[in-house]
Computed example of a mutant assay.
Amino acid sequence: MHFTSLLLLLILPFLSLVFSAPTPAIRDVFSPPVTYPHKGTVWKVGKRYTVTWDMAGAPEHITNNIGMIVLVKDGRMVDLDHPLANNFPINCSHYEITVPKVKAGHDYQILVFGDSGNTGDVFSIEE
């Protein structure tokens, strides 16, 4: 019984600190619209391009503000394990990537993830 009382005396001050801490601000999910590449864009394998997205409608507190860019072909992610870019602040609204070695095609899209994903227009990649 003595040990339990001592344990409570040690834990209670810690618990009062935890429960009196300010509540974090409400955070929102945001899907930034991809602005480049857009319809009619043609990229070449191995070249560098800057992907852009619009942050104009972003909430004050985004649930996950760490970004990731993934290439999509024919509606499917090309390689989620090897994104074109990751671990960048989503509010920067642009990021330079290198086009990976992929087959030429006219059905590619860019997917920008923050706390949610948003796929841009269909564009082409040439070898």
Rank of each mutant, 00 (worst) to 15 (best):
T63H: 10
A25D: 10
P59A: 09
P83N: 09
M77L: 10
R48S: 14
L8Q: 13
L84W: 01
L8C: 12
K73V: 08
T50E: 11
W43E: 03
T98K: 15
T50Y: 08
S20D: 05
F14M: 04
S20M: 03
E96Q: 14
K103R: 14
K44F: 12
N87R: 12
D79K: 12
N65S: 07
L71M: 08
L10W: 06
D54Q: 07
F19A: 01
C92V: 13
T41Y: 08
A21F: 00
A58Y: 09
M55I: 15
A58V: 09
L71R: 07
P13Y: 00
R76S: 13
G75S: 09
V78A: 03
R27K: 10
S31Q: 10
S31A: 11
P100Y: 13
H94C: 10
L80G: 05
D54A: 07
A58K: 15
I97K: 03
T98S: 14
P22W: 00
M68N: 05
I11V: 15
W53L: 08
L84V: 01
Y95S: 02
I26W: 03
G105I: 05
S31M: 12
H82N: 15
F19W: 05
H106Y: 10
P100M: 13
V51I: 15
V102D: 08
P24H: 02
I66A: 06
T23I: 06
V102E: 08
R76Q: 14
M68W: 04
G67H: 01
G75H: 10
I90P: 00
T98H: 08
W43G: 05
D79F: 06
S20W: 01
P83D: 08
I62K: 00
F88W: 07
V99M: 12
T35W: 11
T52D: 03
L8R: 13
V45C: 12
H61Y: 14
V70G: 00
